[in-house]
């Protein structure tokens, strides 16, 4: 069974901007927020949040420049 055959994953892959990086951000988002809820504010959770936002912003710009 492939990853894209899983119920939630297939919905995410089929919709949206047809881009695996954004799809991955969408799938990872709840996990990051869940970790923050469980672990509260720490260096690790802040680094995760910064990384998430940085990937989103920089990748959006990268796609724009590439196009």
């Amino acid at each position: 069974m492939k990853l894209r055959d899983l119920p939630v994953v297939s919905y995410v892959f089929e919709a949206g901007a047809d881009d695996r990086v954004f799809d991955s951000l969408l799938l990872v988002g709840p996990l990051v927020i869940g970790l923050i809820v469980v672990l509260d504010r720490s260096v690790v959770t802040e680094a995760l949040a910064v990384a998430y936002l940085a990937v989103f912003v920089l990748y959006t710009l990268y796609r724009g420049i590439r196009e």
Binding site: E14, A15, L53
Partner: peptide, 28 residues
């Protein structure tokens, strides 16, 4: 498919918004 894509964008932006506010100092 249009509705699914709207949800896709909206949920992605929601995660981005939540994390940005949390980093700015708001409790989770």
């Amino acid at each position: 498919s249009t509705v699914r894509t709207i949800w896709w964008i909206f949920i992605l932006f929601t995660f981005v918004s939540i994390l940005a506010l949390w980093l700015a100092g708001m409790p989770i």
